[in-house]
């Protein structure tokens, strides 16, 4: 098999198609949710809505993750919180601050930005992969989580894990020839792009909408902590 030709396919037409499906899918989800509409709230606002939004994001992204012990979610399930946190931190570092991924963004957006040194990104990638392994073991061993998990949960895990592990193998030239590892990485990424809009991984976008709406309501009622 000519893996270089396959690589050209997964980097070229397949990626292109996956990206368009991803965009169409995310817009579809967004429009569908937006058209659910809002109930008209007749009460007079007691605080600033914009202020509420700002505080909501500060709390959700910048403050609470760094003082997690005050959160109930952390107190009840510290392993899940830490593993999940490391996974997200590693994921974002790799996707946005890893050199090869920045070049992807650059080619798509037309501009690039400085990136971190490979060893640093690498350690966070390892942390993310270990985080994912811990999470799946936890999901299988915790009685409640196991009951809550259906095929969708495991597939979500798998379709995110495959690009992560294939990317790591590729970066370190392990086991396979480079173009083989690269093809597998691209194949898993292409499939993930198609999968995301129709799965709960779409929370990468909806998280920001729910944070915003929640912030608006907090601000309006002046109950922001």
């Amino acid at each position: 098999m000519d893996w270089n030709a396959f690589l050209a396919f997964t980097r070229g037409p397949l990626f292109y198609a996956s990206l368009l499906i991803f965009i169409a899918g995310m817009v579809y989800r967004l429009v569908q949710v937006a058209m659910l509409g809002w109930d008209k709230d007749q009460s007079v606002a007691r605080g600033s809505k914009a202020g509420g939004v700002v505080k909501s994001f500060l709390k959700g992204i910048l403050i609470l993750p760094f003082i997690p012990w005050i959160k109930g979610a952390f107190q009840k399930r510290p392993i899940m919180y830490i593993a999940g946190g490391l996974f997200h931190l590693g994921l974002f570092t790799v996707i946005f601050l890893g050199t090869p991924h920045m070049l992807v963004w650059k080619s798509l957006l037309g501009f690039g930005w400085p990136t971190l040194a490979l060893p640093f990104v690498d350690w966070l990638a390892v942390a993310a992969i270990i985080g994912m392994l811990v999470l799946i073991v936890y999901r299988r061993t915790d009685a409640v989580l196991r009951l809550l998990s259906g095929p969708a949960e495991y597939l979500n895990w798998l379709f995110v894990f495959l690009p992560m592990i294939s990317g790591y193998i590729m970066t370190h030239h392990l086991f396979f020839r480079y173009e083989v590892a690269y093809s597998l990485h691209m194949l898993s990424v292409d499939w993930m792009l198609i999968w995301i809009p129709f799965s709960r991984i779409s929370h990468f976008m909806f998280y920001f909408f729910s944070r915003t709406i929640r912030g608006v309501e907090w601000g309006k009622r002046a109950v922001t902590p």
Binding site: A8, G12, P13, F15, L19, L20, I23, P100, V104, S107
Partner: peptide
């Protein structure tokens, strides 16, 4: 860079997908 996709989606294609 070798990691970049081979084609950059055309504005029209993105518009159509949207």
């Amino acid at each position: 860079g070798q990691s970049a996709p081979l084609q950059r989606p055309a504005i029209g294609a993105v518009g159509a997908a949207t």
